[in-house]
Design a protein around this nucleic acid. Structure first.
Lengths: 236, 236
DNA sequence: AGTATGTGTATACGTTGTATACTACCGTGC
DNA sequence: GCACGGTAGTATACAACGTATACACATACT
């Protein structure tokens, strides 16, 4: 059964590749698109294949199984955050921008967040950023020990900040997750609506807590972490 | 078909409850047990029911669907970390212990890590800890603004540190995840085995990077973050 | 005793991931 | 030009999954 819509698959010729052929990257991008608009749970092999105008089993020419596909998605998102080579001379601002871009990239694809907790999704892209960050710090005269410490603190803070946005979400199961300020406002109301007798501190600090979901607040705190850590380290 | 093993369900009488009856908590604990020994992917309603000597559909008397069950698991783990009421007088050490216990609880159940990235799994337990931490800080004379800042930094660092352990894992798909020192050793070898020309910094710092997966290193850095943050805040 | 309420069962259905076997095409030898 | 072997995609099938629906039985209340 070669249905008409299957036959309608695009036939754009690429050099060194047969016409209209699939590729790992093409599949990954289609998968990410599905995750973005419908959530990770809606990413099925069948739906993915359909979006590529292809039979489900075609996917398995490029990935041994669904888990292997999913494992590559985090790296794909991370690579998005690394494309622009920005050259802020000052180290602390360069670090700020680098980690802020990583956070931004992850926040734009909230659906892949569960995959962060899955072992072994790293590949070249994530490692390349680690290498780049470490190299930059060393070239600014920071010692190996301090560079690792700063890398650890900044990375953990960034990832944790992103996880907090998802995991602390009091609000019910909303399917298309609200973004940025929408989330912040929602969270503030959530915190503020708690029983004041049981959670007095949380209610009192509801506005400040909800502010943690803002990008500005993240960058402010990250810069604080960077400066605090650099302060104890000798560097040029 | 009332099979013999189903009939063998335990009949321990509990007050205010019928003999051998299920409960939300009992189901959650069984689910967590499965996740611990076999991974989140192996948690199926059928297997869960079997481990409770019950029909699959019995689960649905207590949870509307599988996702709702999973959503409670993070909170269950977190509540484990809060059971012991420790009373370290010094604030910085109290905070250190509190967050270290949280990390420890999460590390003991690596299978639930993907659920951290799932929206809205919070319920009373996580919030109670937030309340407790904020209250403790306030009672030590720390202002609302600084308390929120410290809470944000410490929480993000802790969660991020835990996520890093999973996500940075270079090593292949191992099913029963290695713990603690085993993971650290494995990671060091992983980092060190990278092509030195492509990732010179990572290879050079392989030992230090792998050290980030140690509990001792985590506590050391967390204390650094706490102290750095407290330093800028006036308190008693 | 009779009835309502709630807990677990039996059965069934649509979907999922993927093993297996196939078909058609392309680039390479002649 | 043309057979041909490898590769990309297809067709079919199946076990396992989540869960809707209808039922049976035990307990608690009258």
């Amino acid at each position: 059964m070669r249905s008409p819509e299957l036959a309608a698959r695009k036939r754009t010729k690429e050099p060194g590749r047969r016409a209209g052929q699939l590729s790992r990257l093409e599949i990954q991008r289609a998968a990410l698109r599905i995750v973005d608009v419908a959530g990770l749970a809606e990413l099925t092999v069948r739906r993915l294949a359909q979006s590529l105008h292809v039979t489900p089993m075609a996917i398995y020419r490029y990935f041994p199984n669904k888990a292997a596909l999913e494992a590559t998605l985090v790296d794909l998102v991370v690579s998005d955050s690394a494309v622009t080579a920005h050259d802020t001379p000052e180290l602390r601002l360069w670090l700020l921008h680098t980690f802020a871009r990583m956070r931004h990239a992850l926040c734009r694809h909230p659906g892949i967040m569960p995959l962060l907790g899955t072992a072994s999704h790293s590949s070249g892209n994530a490692l390349a950023i680690v290498e780049q960050v470490l190299g930059r710090m060393r070239s600014h005269g920071i010692g190996s020990e301090d560079a690792t410490r700063l890398f650890y603190r900044a990375t953990a803070f960034t990832l944790g900040s992103v996880v907090m946005m998802d995991s602390a979400s009091l609000a019910h199961f909303v399917k298309p997750r609200p973004v940025q300020d929408e989330l912040r406002r929602q969270q503030r109301h959530g915190f503020a609506a708690l029983p004041k007798t049981e959670f007095p501190q949380v209610v009192a600090a509801s506005a400040a807590l909800a502010d943690c979901y803002s990008g500005k607040r993240f960058e402010q705190e990250l810069l604080g972490v960077i400066d605090d850590t650099l302060q104890a380290a000798p560097h040029s």
